[in-house]
Amino acid sequence: MNDPDASFRLAAFERLRLLVQLHGGSLPWSVVNEGFVHEGARIHFATKAEGIFKPAPMTGVLSVTTVVPRAGRRAWYHDQLESEAKLAMAADGLSYAFNGTDPDSRQNRLLRDARDRQLPIIYFFGVAPAIYEPIFPSYVVEWDPKALSVKLAPKPLADTATLWTPPNPDERRYALRQVKQRLHQSAFRERVVAAYGGRCALTGLPEVRLVDAAHIIPDGDVERGQPDIRNGICMSKLHHAAYDADLIGIDPDHRIHISERLLEQHDGPMLELGLKALKGQVIRPPKEKSLMPDPERLALRFERFKMAA
């Protein structure tokens, strides 16, 4: 190990593991921006000003961050399609662009140094505006001045003893499969929640911390279960669980149906007002008509509900 910053990295990774557990995966920028404490000092994980970031007390790079498109005339999730296409094609690592076109610039030399010294770093992958999925430890395994990019490889289950050893090819492929799945699910949730303005489509509940992206067709279905916005509906966590259990159904006309099992029960206001009262109502649509739930998927899923009812 050739890393005088080892204690900084260990402290950063320990704090990130806790934050991921607390937030269930993706982290808002406000949380990333809080940084971590090391030897009594607060150290940033990353900054918005620099995609390739080295804290002042450290000798080497600590993190890299993707540039996430802001909401504008076009919804941000349309702008993510190109990066998703690149992610889908990745086989053993994630491509990350140089800062500018000069391979010998300070920040790009930091990436070369990370490759040469086999430094474990953090990749804050943007899944939505101001929402990041931390991929760590990651390693710069290729530094390509002609392509003006590096290849970052995540490593599965790295412990302290092996933290400064980049993953071998088999580990890279295995870890990347896991990372892809996590990134797809994180991006799916953020897109669906954004499409519905952060509100539950069944009740209008406006608290983003209490809503989920419910799949119409489960993601295990290879043909129709893709993490596509039109395969999702924003629901509160309660209604998402009821939908997954086929206690709630939504037909192709977007009308809500309640299972007879629930209708026959009488046990408190949550059941009466929060679930049974939804019978016959129509879900609240997303902000863009083009993002309405796919009627073919709704029809297939509604058949499952009717069979279970």
Rank of each mutant, 00 (worst) to 15 (best):
L202E: 04
S95I: 15
R73C: 01
E39K: 05
V64K: 02
R115Y: 07
C200E: 03
K287F: 07
L205K: 07
L94R: 05
I122Q: 03
H215A: 00
R17W: 01
A242W: 00
Y96D: 02
V20H: 00
M307L: 11
D159C: 02
R42I: 12
D246R: 15
H184S: 13
H257G: 10
G268Y: 12
F136L: 09
E272S: 13
A153V: 09
P156N: 00
F98V: 05
V150E: 06
S7I: 08
P134M: 03
S83M: 13
N231F: 01
R199W: 08
R284G: 08
I216Y: 03
E14M: 07
K180W: 11
D267S: 13
S149C: 15
V282N: 10
W164P: 03
A175P: 03
S236L: 07
F188H: 12
K48Q: 15
T162K: 03
D113E: 10
S236T: 15
R172P: 05
A299W: 11
V64D: 02
L238E: 02
A195N: 13
G40W: 00
Y196L: 10
R17V: 06
M270C: 07
A75L: 03
P227H: 09
L22G: 01
D3T: 11
R173Q: 07
T66Y: 06
R301M: 14
D79N: 11
D212Y: 09
G198F: 04
P252C: 00
I283P: 04
S290E: 15
G24T: 00
I256Y: 10
L263T: 04
S83W: 12
A130D: 15
R109W: 00
M89H: 04
G220F: 05
L247M: 12
Q185P: 09
F98L: 14
R182K: 14
A75I: 13
P293T: 03
R172K: 15
R191P: 10
F302R: 09
A242T: 13
L202C: 07
P166S: 02
T160N: 06
D104S: 13
G100M: 12
A195I: 10
K146Y: 01
P55N: 08
G197F: 06
L62H: 05
R173A: 14
R191F: 01
A91K: 15
L210K: 04
F13A: 09
W164F: 13
L183S: 11
P4K: 01
R199M: 08
Q226G: 09
L210W: 03
